[in-house]
Deep mutational scan, measured.
Amino acid sequence: KELVLVLYDYQEKSPRELTVKKGDILTLLNSTNKDWWKIEVNGRQGFVPAAYLKKL
């Protein structure tokens, strides 16, 4: 499993997105899109802007 660090808080703006908090370490599911990465948070899957995340 690949992990990502959340660099900035992000509030979901659609049902396909997820809310994340700065400092969270989460599972990366897909990073093929350069702008939006798919991650998992508490069993939910969704997208967060790639600029808000850093691969560990």
Rank of each mutant, 00 (worst) to 15 (best):
K1R: 11
K1W: 12
K1Y: 15
E2W: 11
E2Y: 10
E2D: 12
L3V: 09
L3K: 10
L3G: 03
L3N: 06
L3Q: 12
L3T: 10
V4F: 03
V4A: 08
L5G: 02
L5Y: 11
V6D: 00
V6A: 07
V6R: 00
L7E: 04
Y8A: 15
Y8F: 15
Y8H: 15
D9K: 02
D9Q: 03
D9G: 05
D9Y: 03
D9W: 03
Y10Q: 01
Y10S: 01
Y10I: 01
Y10P: 01
Q11E: 14
Q11D: 15
Q11N: 14
Q11A: 10
E12Y: 06
E12N: 09
K13G: 08
K13Q: 14
K13E: 08
K13I: 08
S14R: 10
S14A: 10
S14C: 09
P15E: 14
P15T: 10
P15A: 11
P15H: 13
P15Q: 10
R16D: 14
R16S: 13
R16Q: 14
R16P: 09
R16L: 15
R16F: 15
E17Q: 12
E17A: 07
E17F: 06
E17S: 08
L18M: 14
L18G: 03
L18R: 05
L18Y: 02
T19P: 04
T19E: 04
T19W: 05
T19R: 06
T19Y: 05
T19Q: 05
V20N: 00
V20L: 06
V20F: 04
V20H: 02
V20Q: 00
K21V: 12
K21L: 09
K21M: 11
K21I: 08
K22M: 10
K22E: 09
K22D: 03
G23C: 06
G23P: 01
G23K: 02
G23S: 03
D24G: 04
D24P: 00
D24E: 12
I25L: 08
I25Y: 05
L26N: 07
L26S: 08
L26K: 02
T27P: 14
T27L: 14
T27H: 15
T27N: 12
L28M: 04
L28P: 00
N30C: 10
S31V: 07
S31Y: 10
S31N: 09
S31A: 14
S31D: 14
S31T: 11
T32N: 12
T32D: 15
T32L: 10
T32R: 11
T32I: 08
T32A: 14
N33K: 07
N33Q: 10
N33L: 09
K34Q: 10
K34T: 11
K34G: 11
K34P: 13
D35W: 14
D35T: 09
D35Q: 10
D35C: 09
W36F: 11
W36Q: 03
W37I: 02
W37Y: 06
K38W: 14
K38E: 15
K38I: 14
K38T: 09
I39K: 00
I39Y: 00
I39S: 03
I39F: 02
I39L: 15
E40H: 05
E40M: 08
E40A: 09
V41N: 13
V41A: 14
V41G: 15
V41T: 11
V41P: 00
V41L: 13
N42D: 15
N42S: 10
N42L: 11
N42V: 07
G43M: 06
G43Y: 05
G43W: 04
G43S: 08
G43R: 05
G43N: 10
G43H: 12
R44N: 14
R44L: 12
R44K: 13
Q45C: 10
Q45A: 14
Q45H: 11
Q45M: 12
Q45L: 07
G46M: 09
G46H: 04
G46Y: 06
G46Q: 02
V48Y: 02
V48K: 00
V48L: 08
P49F: 02
P49D: 03
P49Q: 02
P49G: 02
A50T: 07
A50C: 06
A50R: 10
A50Y: 02
A50E: 04
A51F: 12
A51L: 14
Y52T: 09
Y52W: 07
Y52L: 10
Y52A: 14
Y52F: 11
Y52D: 03
Y52M: 11
L53F: 04
L53D: 00
L53P: 00
L53A: 01
L53Q: 00
L53M: 06
K54Y: 10
K55H: 08
K55Q: 08
K55S: 09
K55E: 07
K55A: 08
K55M: 14
L56F: 09
L56M: 13
L56T: 06
L56I: 13
L56V: 12
L56Y: 09
L56Q: 05
L56S: 03
L56W: 08
